[in-house]
Design a protein around this nucleic acid. Structure first.
Lengths: 217, 217
DNA sequence: TATTGGCATCTGGAATACCAGATACCAAAT
DNA sequence: ATTTGGTATCTGGTATTCCAGATGCCAATA
């Protein structure tokens, strides 16, 4: 007997990457604040070598900036970055729709509806809400069968969650998001590219506006 | 007096990253072949720590795959990856055009024409040709004023160069590329989004087809 | 002959040691 | 009071060391 799946071992760098990113997204560390390799490695209980790899990934993905021989600064949140991310998100989520529509079958559409209905089970917790909303978008991204696109959308969604968590706390309409998702699903059911694209763009524009309104600059 | 620019020091990891990537793109190392940290660090004259950082970046960008405790394998070139990259390239180069058109002035258009004319100075060298073609696309990407988009297009263009270098050697029409670029510039001059987008997509579809035809699978 | 178990030797992962740049502070000199 | 220079001590960058998983060979065994 053999394992067909890769069975990747759990590496310290991956663990560190996830932990630090989670801390940033959930605003456990403030944007603009400093981090230091030595103290980070202590609090995570690992040495600096795997930590450096985690930090490098975080830097390449735009979460932190490494200042050689000075320290690490958590990226600030500003209007320009939010705009950049939403420009990319619009173009690439539309691409995902374009790619997945020809691949759709009824069973898949049911699964999409199931994922969206998770939103209804949530009461107040903004982090849960965030995760449920993300699941919907990421599920569509996966269906595109384009791995690079999937990774890109994953990263963009994570950033939007980071930007938006404050907005979420100040209370956003959960029902609105649910029904905007439903409009997307309707478009998919009709296998209508234009209709679906419009629904996606409408949803993203709404999300963009809400976040910008809560930036407080 | 002070330096306003960051003045980043030259780090070994960046040097290693560029060297290894250049080797892959120029097919100095075969797709599918193995690399080993120890021998790489020796031939580059650096230790494994900065090398690991370079390798991690190359892995995140899709050039290599790290197999823990086994080695590093250079990514293979196959039809599916080529298609993925061109799907992304189309959507995102079109986005770049969309963003840059409102920012255009006559001086900038002159610069674009200048960059394109570099193609005419090239005789035979496929690497020079590749670089000149890339310069055109990357110059447009920069003008989009979206840093993340710029980075993404840079990466996608590098991959296409990697895929395409074999096709280039088997002889591609330099004049065709030049005139396809000219059509893009005409669209920009007219500040016509649809016209420019069509020209870009036409150019990319052509490029995609040429590369797929030379994959030899 | 076919199979198994152990060892030599590859690999990358992780921890540690060491070095140089950056910075802040404080005392000495003007 | 102000400037200057040295030093203590931060930082990340790099090199080195140590360790564990993976692999292949080969002899011992059934």
């Amino acid at each position: 007997m053999s394992f067909s799946k890769a069975e990747q071992p759990q590496l310290f760098k991956d663990h560190a990457y996830k932990e630090i990113k989670k801390g940033i997204i959930q605003h456990k560390v403030e944007p603009g604040s400093m981090l230091y390799e030595r103290s980070l490695s202590e609090s995570l209980g690992i040495s600096r070598t795997p930590l450096k790899l985690a930090l490098q990934q975080l830097e390449l993905e735009g979460w932190i900036q490494s200042l050689p021989r000075k320290g690490i600064v958590v990226q600030s949140i500003n209007r320009h970055d939010v705009d950049e991310v939403f420009q990319l998100r619009k173009a690439n989520e539309v691409l995902a729709i374009e790619l997945l529509i020809p691949l759709l079958d009824d069973e898949t559409i049911e699964k999409i509806e199931k994922v969206n209905k998770q939103l209804l089970d949530i009461k107040e917790d903004p982090i849960q809400f965030m995760n449920a909303d993300s699941s919907f978008h990421l599920f569509l991204a996966e269906l595109s069968q384009n791995h690079r696109l999937n990774q890109l959308i994953q990263n963009l969604t994570d950033h939007v969650n980071w930007y938006g968590l404050v907005a979420l706390k100040s209370g956003i309409s959960l029902d609105e998001v649910y029904s905007e998702h439903k409009l997307i699903i309707e478009g998919l059911k009709a296998r209508n590219l234009d209709q679906t694209t419009d629904a996606v763009l409408n949803h993203l524009v709404h999300s963009h506006r809400t976040i910008v309104a809560n930036l407080g600059e």
